[in-house]
C-alpha cells in the first residue's frame, strides 16, 4: 500500500524557526469613540507560549485580549489571524473560529441557569455536535482535572468564586481550543481562592497550552510565563521574557509600574 500524504489545505503559519504561529495581530487599532484603546499592535504568539499581559488599569490589556476572539471589533485596516486564518466578520465562520479560542473571564460568566456539568457540556453538544453521553464523560474528566467533579450537579451560584472560575476553565477546555485567553481570571476572587485557580493555570501551561493571560499576579507571571507584554495607553511598551522584565525593565513606565506593585 502506498502512502501519500495529502498536502495541507491551509498550511499553518510559521515563524522563521518553523514554530507554528497561533495568534497573529497586524496593525491592530481600536477606538471607543474618540478614545484610542489600542495603537498599532503587531504581535505573534507561537504554539505553546504563555504570554502574560501586564499594565496599569486602562492600558488596553483587556481590550487586547477581547479582540483576539472578536468580543471587541477592531478598526478597519488591522488583521487578526488565528492559526493562519483571518478572523471572519460575523456569522457561522466567526462562531467556528471562536470555538478554537477559549476565553476565561474576570467575572466567570458561568451560565447561571445551567448546572456545572451542563455548563461544560453545552459547547461540545451545541457547537461540535458531540453526543450527550460522550460530552458528559469528557466534562467529568475535565471537572476532575480542575478539582470540582463533586460539584457537577450543583448550580453555579452554589459554588465559591474559585470553584466557579475553575469550572469556567473546564468549560473553555471542553472545546479543545488552540489558544486560551484569560482576562484577569483572579481579579474578582477572594485572596484565599486565587491560588487554586492559578494552580490550574500553571498546570495547563506545563502541559503546553498556548495562553494569553491578562493578570496582576506577578508570581504567576514569573513562574508560568514565557513572555511578558507590558502595555500602557494602548501600546505594547515592552515585549520580553519575565526574568528580564522583572529584573531589568527598560521603559520608564514599566519601571514606574513595577515600583508601585512590588514595593507594597
Amino acid at each position: 500500500m502506498t502512502q501519500t500524504t495529502p498536502p495541507p489545505a491551509d498550511p499553518p503559519a510559521a515563524d522563521s524557526t518553523g514554530t507554528r504561529i497561533l495568534v497573529e495581530l497586524e496593525n491592530v487599532n481600536k477606538h471607543f469613540g474618540s478614545f484610542q484603546a489600542l495603537t498599532d499592535i503587531n504581535l505573534t504568539i507561537p504554539e505553546r507560549q504563555v504570554a502574560i499581559v501586564l499594565g496599569p488599569s486602562g492600558s488596553g490589556k483587556s481590550t487586547l485580549c477581547r479582540t483576539i476572539n472578536r468580543l471587541e471589533t477592531i478598526d478597519p485596516g488591522g488583521t487578526i489571524r488565528i492559526d493562519g486564518k483571518p478572523l471572519p466578520d460575523e456569522g457561522k465562520a466567526l462562531a467556528r473560529l471562536r470555538a478554537d479560542v477559549g476565553m476565561v473571564f474576570q467575572s466567570f460568566n458561568l451560565f447561571a441557569h445551567k448546572s456545572i456539568l451542563e455548563n461544560v457540556t453545552l459547547g461540545p453538544i451545541k457547537v461540535k455536535g458531540v453526543k450527550k453521553a460522550q460530552a458528559e464523560k469528557d466534562a467529568m474528566g475535565l471537572l476532575e482535572r480542575v478539582g470540582v467533579a463533586q460539584q457537577a450537579r450543583k448550580m453555579p451560584a452554589q459554588l465559591s468564586g474559585g470553584q466557579q472560575q475553575r469550572v469556567a476553565i473546564a468549560r473553555a477546555l471542553a472545546m479543545k481550543p488552540k489558544v486560551l485567553l484569560f482576562d484577569e481570571p483572579t481579579s474578582a476572587l477572594d485572596p484565599e481562592m486565587v491560588q487554586e485557580v492559578l494552580d490550574v493555570m500553571v498546570q495547563l501551561a506545563r502541559e503546553g497550552m498556548t495562553m494569553v493571560v491578562v493578570t496582576h499576579e506577578m508570581g504567576f507571571a514569573r513562574k508560568a510565563g514565557d513572555r511578558v507584554l507590558f502595555m500602557d495607553e494602548g501600546k505594547v511598551l515592552e515585549d520580553t521574557d519575565p526574568e528580564s522584565f522583572f529584573t531589568r525593565p527598560q521603559h520608564p513606565r514599566a519601571k514606574d509600574f513595577l515600583g508601585k506593585i512590588l514595593t507594597h
Binding site: L71, A95, R98, L110
Partner: peptide, 8 residues
Amino acid sequence: EAARAIGL
C-alpha cells in the same frame, strides 16, 4: 459573551 466565546 461567554456563549459567543464557546462558539455559539
